[in-house]
Design a protein around this nucleic acid. Structure first.
Length: 639
RNA sequence: GCCCUUGUAGCUCAGCUGGUAGAGCAAUUGAUUUGUAAUCAAUAGGUCCGCGGUUCGAAUCCGUGCGGGGGCACCA
């Protein structure tokens, strides 16, 4: 008879098979009330599951991740039930739990509207009020397939057909009228879901995630264990929207997009200044790290891209150009072939290795229209690119050096939380498998040596080599992919790169591709969202606006601004005929970090009154002292 | 690229079931000379995204193209 071990080590003996409810009863009344599901020897089960042998059992409530996920899963089921009640003929497909919620994909001719979502929510609410009971059944595979085919659920039937034959098929009934194939576990009844849910959006989604398949309609929802958690979540979404770099970019007068060139940025003075500051900073850091900066053509003859393999493997993303004499050129989508040509010019010795060549190269890629998204995904972008030519023995150590540089630079820009993604060979690739074996092993060794958290992405490497990607977490917990490091044992050979080794023979170097910001454009988008537009002083494009209280003080204000600019603090004077309040509001909205107010008091004492963004505390300071303090703040961080 | 949705003044938006456009802010001009998040007034500003169609008549309805947004697929 079962001997149940609880997580705290406590054991309870039963003299007959027990369900989760029986166990809860033995522990406390409140647990019986709050329990949602349980795990038996690490496997999640319905509370009604009967345990017959000695087991380790853990009970989950809404406070546990497992409990909350079950609430979301049940909400998805109840949504599907509501949809099928309201819209007969709609087929169900899959409905998993995702971060913060769930979705369910449906096959239906007419599109779901926002109005439909409200109706569905209302029906869900009614089903929850009815507190319909959940019942699990195990079905025979052929019976299940036949059944779902008969009731017109061809997608469900297809799912069952793809489940391995030895797996148990469970059907969950919710009430007497609706059922779905599901692995479970589920709550005991719909009332346990509560009312802290909301359907958020409807979108298209391919059946089985394959763009060759038909498109289904996906309804997304979110569900929580309390109304407060739901409200908090909705508030977080709202906060994230306020940080949207497209909105802030407009307000801060940084850049804009227009129809004539979708996915390409029109940088305004302030945005371009920010861009240049990042480039200057990166130049400074790379020079210190031993990189040599080069620059290569944006347009290169087709033959080079054929040799490099881009024409074949990357062609659908490439812009091409035909000249009046009918030669075909490609606008570079990557900087690597050009860089290799610089390496190829003249003889290189093993003594030159590792040779680090950097390039702020602007590349163009024809991205699918649906992928474009502000600065985050564009068709023309600038990479802070570099290629390191080295020997196979140097791969691991050079990769580590790059990683340390990246982490250091991210820190300067306010990002301390970085994880790695390691990707190995993709299906579409160039090069022999043994070559891939070598480069994958060397890179993975470097990944492990960083001791950072990493994940492995199978088959997602570049077509010429495995890669690591650097993902940073921003101020509100979102992950952004930025830097990348790729090992390449293929391109140097294809493009005929060699160096003279100790013994006088010619050898093929290994090439490491790396970018730290990845795309300057995207990185600026990330910076804006991370700081909600309130950039650190040193990187702010316009750092100070000097505001005279009235036009009696215009001359003094101009003098102050000139002195700031002489000290490399970027400033302007606001001489417009508006009052102080107006000007403070206007410049605060465009996220100027420091406003300097000048009136009689300041003129008389040769000082300025400082008004920082989001801080209406005022501080009056001698102009000389301000210059000294803020010139220091304006410098690139050095560590 | 695919599904849904959307496109009106520099910006944010209103314009019901078809009758040739309206607000606030911004701009310009004038008044005001201001001490920490919007001073007042006047003026000017629009091939209602493009192209076709229906209609006596289209910002409004239909088709199509382009752009934006949310997803999917793709990806820095």
């Amino acid at each position: 008879m079962p001997n149940i071990t609880l997580p705290d080590g406590k054991q309870i003996k039963f003299d007959k098979p027990v369900s989760g409810f029986d166990i809860c009863d033995k522990i406390s009344k409140s647990l019986t009330k709050n329990a949602l599901i349980m795990s038996v020897d690490g496997k999640q089960k319905d509370l009604s599951f009967n345990i017959e042998t000695d087991s380790k059992v853990k009970i989950f409530t809404a406070k546990d991740k497992e409990g909350l996920e079950t609430i979301r899963h049940d909400t998805a089921h109840i949504m599907a039930m509501a949809v099928q009640e309201l819209y007969p003929g709609t087929q169900v497909t899959i409905g998993p739990v995702i971060e913060n919620g769930f979705f369910y994909d449906f096959a239906r001719k007419d599109p779901f509207t926002d109005d439909d979502l409200k109706k569905i929510e209302k029906r869900m609410s009614e089903i929850i009020d009815k507190d319909v009971k959940t019942r699990r059944e195990v079905w025979d595979r052929d019976k299940a397939i036949g059944h779902f085919k008969k009731i017109g659920e061809k997608y469900k039937a297809e799912i069952i057909e793809s489940i391995p034959k030895n797996e148990e098929l469970s059907i969950y009934h919710h009430g007497d009228t609706w059922h779905d194939l599901c692995r479970g576990p589920h709550l005991v009844s719909s009332g346990k879901i509560g009312k802290a849910f909301k359907l958020t959006k409807v979108s298209g989604a391919y059946w089985r995630g394959d763009s060759d398949n038909e498109m289904l309609q996906r309804i997304y929802g979110t569900a929580w264990s309390s109304q407060k958690e739901l409200d908090d979540y909705l508030k977080r979404i709202e906060e994230a929207e306020k940080r949207d770099h497209r909105k802030l970019g407009k307000e801060m007068d940084l850049f804009h997009f227009r129809e004539e060139s979708p996915g390409s940025v029109f940088w305004h003075e302030r945005g371009w200044s920010l861009f240049q500051k990042l480039v200057d900073y990166m130049r400074y850091r790379q020079k210190k790290a031993g990189y040599k900066e080069i620059n290569t053509p944006e347009i290169l003859d087709r033959s080079l891209w054929e040799k490099s393999g881009h024409w074949e493997k990357f062609g659908e993303h490439m812009y091409t150009s035909t000249t009046p004499d009918e030669k075909i050129f490609a606008i570079k989508p990557m900087n690597c072939p050009g860089c290799v040509q610089v390496f190829n010019q003249g003889l290189k010795s093993y003594r030159d290795l590792p040779l680090k060549m950097s390039e702020f190269g602007k590349v163009h890629r024809y991205e699918p229209s649906g992928a474009l998204h502000g600065l985050m995904r564009v068709r023309a972008f600038t990479q802070d690119d570099a290629h390191i030519f080295c020997t196979e023995d140097q791969i691991t150590s050079e990769s580590l050096t790059v990683t340390n540089l990246i982490l250091n630079i991210y820190k300067d820009l306010g990002f301390n939380n970085v994880i790695l993604k390691y990707s190995d060979r993709p299906d579409v690739r160039v090069g022999e498998d043994q070559v891939w074996d070598k480069s994958e092993a060397a890179l993975l060794e470097a990944v492990k040596a960083t001791k950072l958290e990493y994940s492995i992405n199978k088959g997602e490497g570049a077509f010429y080599g495995p890669k690591i990607e650097f993902v940073l977490r921003d101020a509100i917990g979102r992950d952004w992919q930025c830097g990348t490091l790729q090992v390449d044992l293929n391109l140097p050979e294809r493009l005929g790169a060699t160096y003279v080794d100790k013994d006088g023979s010619k050898k093929i170097p290994v090439m490491l591709h790396r970018a730290l910001f990845g795309s300057l454009e995207r990185f600026i988008g990330i910076l804006i969202e991370n700081y909600a537009g309130k950039l650190p002083f040193w990187i702010s494009p316009l750092q100070v606006v000097v505001i005279p209280i009235s036009d009696d003080f215009d001359e003094y204000a101009k003098k102050v601004s000139e002195k700031l600019n002489d000290s490399d603090i970027n400033s302007i004077v606001d001489l417009k005929n508006h009052n102080l309040n107006y000007k403070i509001r206007e410049h605060s909205l465009s996220k100027i970090p420091v406003l300097l107010i000048c009136g009689k008091k300041e003129v008389d004492s040769n000082s300025v009154t400082i008004r920082k963004l989001d801080n209406n505390k005022q501080e009056t300071m001698k102009l000389e002292k301000f210059l000294e303090q803020y010139t220091a703040l304006s410098k690139v961080p050095s560590n």
